[in-house]
Design a protein around this nucleic acid. Sequence first.
DNA 1: CGAATTGAGTTTTTT
DNA 2: ACTCAATTCG
Length: 701
Amino acid sequence: MKRDDLFEGLSEQQKEAICYVEGPLLVLAGAGSGKTKVITHKLLYLEREEGLPAEGILTVTLTNRAASEIRHTVAEFMNGPEHNYPIGTPRWHCLQILRREITALGYGTDFVIYDDDDREALIRHILREFNIYEALYKGVASRLGYLKASLVWPEEFVSTGDGFGFDEKLAKVYVRYQDELKRCNAVDCDDLVMLTVRLFREFPEILEQYKERYQYILVDDFHDLSPAEYEFLRLLFANRNFTVTADDDQCIMKFKGGESRNIYKLEEDFPEVRVLPLEKNFRSTQNIVKVFGSVISRNTSRKDKRIRPLREKGEKVFFYWLPTEEDEAKYVVKNIREVYLRGEYSYGDMAILYRIPSQSRTIEEALKREKIPYRVIGGENFYERKEIRDLIAYLKLIQNPHDNVSLRRVINLPSRGIGIQTLTKLEQESKVKGTSLYETIKEVCSKRGSNQPIVERLRSFVKLIEALRKRAGDPVSEILKSIMELSGYGLNLSEEKLQYIGELMASTEETGLEEFLEKVSLMSSYDDVCEKDSVSLMTIPMSRGLEFPVVFIIGLEEGLIPYFKTLEDEEGISDERRLFYLGMTRAKDILFLTGAKKRRVLSRLQEQEPSRFLKDIPRQYCAWIEKSPCHIPASLGDGKKPKTFRVATVYKTGCRVRHPKWGIGVIRECYGEGDEMKVCVNFPKVGLKRLAIKYAQLERL
DNA sequence: CGAATTGAGTTTTTT
DNA sequence: ACTCAATTCG
């Protein structure tokens, strides 16, 4: 492949960013300016032109999705299969390092990873033990996560705590929690980064080794890294060969100290860093750029950047203000249909974005009614289902029987007659002896003479786990089968749940146990977004890094955007504005904004005010339509002629028909009446066809 | 010990 | 309105 291919279609600024290798580089990139492209192509450039081995280039992304996209593009350019080059999220990289080096910190290399659920379970257990109001566990969990992401170790927190009340208790819980993890040979998700930093700090020779290995470092979405992740990279940055891309306007992860902290910190830590702006917006039409540009410009304390639209004016941005949320849903669906019938876009090109997950319900109902295919991204995660998590707990226990959290989860699943009383006794004993629960149970069982029924039950449980552990080397699907057979789990499970389990088995195929557990625990909402031809629904943060030709943002009301919980300080409003901005920047061609006057919030009907952010939008770029009881006349402007489609008696737009030759298709448009009616039908394999009902032998489905 | 009923708390976003 | 957890009864 030629060098030119690498630069095809790139702006001068992008090329410059790619070729600059003389020192650290910070690419300040506006939305839609192709910053991920810079990262990907720079990786290829370094490999091809600078002669660096691809294994020696550390590439960091924020999401697994972004990582696999880069991996995929790289493979494409190299005309080869996908390699396991070091491309991944900070956690993924840290995990790779810890698997090799963690013994230095006193853990075993076969440590398990606790996900958020496990963490919560453990915290609840500790709270109960400390006699702290157990319902606080959620708050405690998030505080602990925050502390860890901020790189505050338990012992540090004990000394910095203000010494009274809640923080003191929290410190105690934190210490205990961390101890317990180590005793179970487990790390939680935040530990991955925190422990790697500790490893690098305490063992400089290990850090040296990795600095040598990674000759160049590429970081995408640098602005959203946690302090711990920043520190992890800063340590590796020491040889000063790195490129990071950042946009403070898109920063939506809030960590202490404000939005562009990472960017300022980087400039502080590496004063020689070169800053290169990326200002051209390739993605959105002029109107859209003008609209989101004027919204974000109201934020103070941001790095000044221009965004220059490259594209044509495009369609105006639509705004609808409607009486109720049901009307809003209807309008959205109606417009989806209209845009779809115009023929340029398919359902997969459209996305509906909202602030909180519960907003999806009304929209979903409307879409269902109209039979429009859709998918909710990041909704019910497959791996969050109870039955799946139960089985995963079994798997974790097989890998590491000292994992108390998983043991507590499965010991009475299915019911083995081992209840809380027994468990409490066992826990007391194991606390005295300082052994894991599993060891304690084994000990109890080995005592001869005790033939109480309860001991018998424990024995059969141990027997089960031992038998399963013998299969630990099998592929996961085999292990799962054994679990089902030997444990009797699933004997009285619903057909539906069994089906999910079947799906789980099918999805694991030949994967090994360790590999599988790692994949699961690092996964968040990893859904491939653009695969099927259906409308995507998701929260705005979920949409980060994606783009869609047609975007709807719903619920543009005070209390929702900006969300009422964030209204306390100026900082919160800025965060919300960035969030709104992020959502709008996802749109390529058409952007719809909607809001409703009446909405159900927490089961009560509420009167809503239009979002304050709407005031920042200059009307000349919009078609502004307010249909509310207060009858504010729509601002005139040319708007778009409302496209109405004739609804025929028998054949309607959107319905499915079968043609003898072309098979099944969808009617996109109808013309004329009665006998004279003609329809425009889209056949998946053949394309758009115009047919007269009179002659074509169509069959309505 | 397990099932059923009642009651409380809950919806901000993510790795 | 809905989900999750605790309590009480069998």
